[in-house]
Amino acid sequence: MKTENDIAIKVQGLAKRFGDVQAVTAVDFEVNTGELFGFLGPNGAGKTTTINMLTGLARPDAGTIHIGGIDCTRRPRAAQHLIGVVPDESNLYPELSGFDNLGFCAALYGMGKAERQARAKELLEAFDLTKAAGRRFGGYSKGMKRRLTIAAGIIHRPRILFLDEPTTGIDVASARQLRQLIGDLHKNGTTIFLTTHYIEEAERLCDRIAFIMSGRIVRIDTVANLVQPIREKHVMQITFANGVNDLSDRLAEEFPGLNFTSPEPGLIQVEADAPIRVGPLVRFLEDRGAEVAEARRIRPSLEDVFVRITGVGADVMRKEKEKSGGNQ
């Protein structure tokens, strides 16, 4: 039996409408204290609307939100001291230095001058920004801006941290560094609510994940439980060196126990409940003029689970990453 202290965020029947668009519908979930909870979905799925309602930047049309046991539906700003928010775009003051930005954010939480100066120095060091402390925030690189924005979000040592697309639009090295920082915060006991459309990032970091699609939660579970059924499947990808006609139908006739799909030209994906024998498959294909370049076993990932559950293809997610400046 969970107590109030075990639950950091509790959401029931959350709904939000913008004009004709029902952005979020009947959303229910709980985030346990100290948990790193992933909130995944394609662009426009309702991730940011949900995070805005949770953080008090938007009012739900229906439903209840409890943060740290506080009813935020009745008292929307009462839990602000418990939460830290890192928005999807850096929103610090471009004309202030990194140090002054952190000092200002600390002052918003009522921290005294000596305390906020010490905390700003500590975070600048932790986030490898000490050398840039006196420089204008507007002149920082994207990765530095994201790091300082995260530092500003935790300046008051919040119990619950909302991270909205933390690694979007930054280079690989900075993204890796940020993931390390997020992992460290999680280890230190901070409850983290992470929205992202980098599925591999969520798989690497999160304890549990909720998939949101068209404003509805379609699945919530631990990463292990989500991936488990699909990992029991045997999946193989066969790549052709030459252009061949789609042989999926003929393969299905010849090998009735196997499931064939062609995700892209020159590639066939084979799925089965038992180990796949490569020899007969390759012989069958080569007898029909196909030149097999590679046949390799694929370990299904959370991305495959996401594609199965939401119906959104990996290519769509990839395009979204590119559109949003993702660089991973």
């Binding site: 953080t55 008090g56 930047l57 700003r77 602000q80 001291h81 939460i83 928010v85 928005p87 775009e89 929103n91 610090l92 003051y93 471009p94 954010c105 918003l108 939480y109 009522g110 500003a152």
Partner: peptide
């Protein structure tokens, strides 16, 4: 416009 006002709205002070 540049969303820094959101930071103020998130602060635990009365509107």
């Amino acid at each position: 416009k540049n969303r820094s006002f959101e930071r103020l709205l998130l602060a635990p002070i009365p509107l």
